[in-house]
């Protein structure tokens, strides 16, 4: 068993006034020790909700219908709040999208890293403070003694995200969930943050669940990629398989819309329409209404996720084993 985390049949719905909206349907995947797993999809596809559910951080109006989240051999779903707080920030930590709002505006940034250490480790404040300083250096911040006492608004976006990362890795977690960690940052800063994440992955052996809407970025970072759509996993394989021979029409669309050198000057492809979730008990392919090749069957039942080619899963009736289905 080299699986750090296995999610089995996860189903999550939201209660809104009278109806339920299903945001995660039958999601199963695992993360191996030390791997970087990519989770791709448009906003609203359920990727963030899936990730929040791992250490029990779902918002109050979310309901987990069923499913198991096995982390290190234990089903986290059975954990009580106290057990969960022992895992959060310690074994599983988060890097959120928006560094400018992820930090408490009224707390010096050093203390926000320190806090993560002192609640999980029984060490003196001085020692903890020392390790904060060395963490800050590790994530590429300079003038750390000074920066420790600064407030978030005095730092740049990139610096803030490095603080968030320092807090996330402070207890040497087994799993880091990075939810769009560079989306809010300038392009020039993005590369540095991605490089840092890779370094930390290599150095500490922490697994990373890398969540992004940007397939190209995920391809750069990850060993394996999951593509999600409207709460469903629609494709899942090694990164190179996904990029070179996508099986699902949606993935195909995503790849076509990646800007590259050869497409320069041409209009970029985009998938028409918007994500719409299936209603409860609605039976059709979630992508059918936007799919250019949809046929009758696509509107009659929900396709299963099947292993079409060994190691390559897809949720589509029409996908065929040959190239570019």
């Amino acid at each position: 068993m080299n699986n750090l985390l296995s999610i089995e049949n996860l189903n999550i719905k939201f209660k809104s006034k009278k109806t339920y909206t299903k945001v995660v349907t039958d999601v199963s995947f695992d993360i191996k020790k030390g791997e970087i797993l990519g989770l791709v999809g448009e906003s609203g596809c359920g990727k963030t909700i899936t990730s929040l559910s791992i250490p029990g951080l779902l918002p109050k109006d979310a309901i987990v219908e069923n499913g198991k989240i096995i982390f290190d051999g234990h089903n986290i779903m059975d954990f009580n709040e106290k057990e969960l707080t022992e895992i959060r920030g310690n074994r599983i930590s988060f890097i959120f999208q928006e560094p400018s709002t992820s930090l408490n505006p009224l707390m010096p940034v050093g203390n926000q890293i320190l806090e993560n250490i002192v609640i999980h480790k029984k060490i003196s404040k001085e020692e903890a403070k020392k390790s904060v300083i060395s963490l800050m250096k590790k994530v590429g911040l300079s003038d750390t003694e000074n920066m420790y006492k600064k407030y978030p608004h005095e730092l740049s976006g990139g610096q803030k995200q490095r603080i968030v990362i320092a807090a996330a890795v402070s207890c040497n977690p087994a799993l880091i969930i990075a939810d769009e960690p560079t989306t809010a940052l300038d392009v020039t800063i993005q590369a540095g943050i991605l490089e840092l994440l890779k370094e930390l992955n290599a150095e500490y052996g922490s697994s990373i669940l890398f969540i992004s809407h940007d397939l190209a970025l995920v391809n750069q970072m990850c060993d394996r990629i999951i593509v999600m759509y409207a709460g469903f996993i629609i494709e899942f394989s090694e990164a190179e398989n996904i990029i070179s021979s996508p099986l699902h029409p949606y993935t195909n669309g995503l790849i076509k819309s990646i800007p590259t050198e050869s497409k320069k000057g041409k209009k970029l492809y985009s998938v028409e329409g918007r994500v719409s979730h299936l209603r409860e008990n609605e039976k059709k392919c979630p992508f059918a209404s936007r799919c250019t090749i949809a046929q009758d069957i696509c509107f009659k039942s929900v396709p299963e996720l099947r292993e079409l080619i060994p190691g390559h899963f897809v949720r589509c009736f029409l996908a065929k084993g040959d190239k570019n289905g």
Binding site: P55, R88, N90, F96, E98, M107, E115, N116, I119, V164
Partner: peptide
């Protein structure tokens, strides 16, 4: 967001209130 971040660090709801929310 910083409240969610505080929870993700492993703070319990009392600590989140005391260290983060109340002052803000």
């Amino acid at each position: 967001d910083y409240v969610r971040m505080a929870y993700s660090k492993g703070l319990n709801s009392f600590r989140v209130m005391k260290n983060h929310v109340i002052r803000n």
